[in-house]
Structure formats: structure tokens, C-alpha cells
């Protein structure tokens, strides 16, 4: 059954990569990249169980944190044009 789940995750990864290449806006590509990150974590865990050596889970845990930090870094860069920007005043006070 781990084989089926692995193949399903691989199909989902392929579809996410297709969206990342097609995506009209930068946010579509970013969403697809985030999805690819989640898929990679699941693939790592499933592959570990598939080969009866579930020691890849630590790498998966690290990848979760890297994935979120990467998404936020790219988001901040495309909103402000710089990673060291402090944020606009109206963005901090005003809620949409």
C-alpha cells in the first residue's frame, strides 16, 4: 500500500510542477512551490517506510521548517522588493 501512496504523491508532485510552470502570477508559482515542498516531505516519509528504513523523518522535519521560511522570504521579497524591509505603516495598522 505504501507503493500506491508513493505513486499518488508523485502524481500530485507532477501536477504541482505543471502549475508552477504555467502559473500566470508569481503567487500561483509560490503556492505550487509550497505544495511541492509538502509533497517532498510526504515522499521522504513514505519512501522510508517503503524501504523499511524510516530514518529519513529527521530530514523531513527539517524540510518543513525550510519550506515555510522559504515561502515567507519570497513573499516578503515580492511585496517590498527587499528582504530587510520593515513593512509599511498602513499595512501594520489597517486590516483589510
Amino acid at each position: 500500500m505504501f507503493e500506491v501512496a508513493t505513486i499518488a504523491v508523485l502524481i500530485a508532485l507532477t501536477l504541482a510542477v505543471i502549475r508552477a510552470t504555467r502559473g500566470p502570477t508569481i503567487f500561483d508559482r509560490l503556492l505550487a512551490a509550497n505544495s511541492v515542498g509538502t509533497g517532498a516531505i510526504l515522499l521522504l516519509s513514505l519512501f522510508g517506510f517503503l524501504t523499511h528504513r524510516p530514518e529519513f523523518l529527521d530530514i523531513g522535519l527539517t524540510y518543513v521548517l525550510l519550506n515555510m521560511i522559504g515561502t515567507f522570504a519570497v513573499l516578503k521579497f515580492f511585496r517590498h522588493g527587499a528582504l530587510g524591509h520593515v513593512g509599511d505603516e498602513d499595512e501594520r495598522t489597517k486590516i483589510l
Binding site: 500500500m1 500506491v4 501512496a5 499518488a8 504523491v9 502524481i11 500530485a12 508532485l13 501536477l15 504541482a16 502549475r19 503556492l31 505550487a32 505544495s35 509533497g39 510526504l42
Partner: peptide, 14 residues
Amino acid sequence: GVGSVFYVIGAIGL
């Protein structure tokens, strides 16, 4: 099995 189905459905929706 259920997780695989839901995961592929999410990717198709994407």
C-alpha cells in the same frame, strides 16, 4: 488509500 485520493484531488484542483 484515503490520503492518496485526497492528495491527488488537491493537486488536480491546483
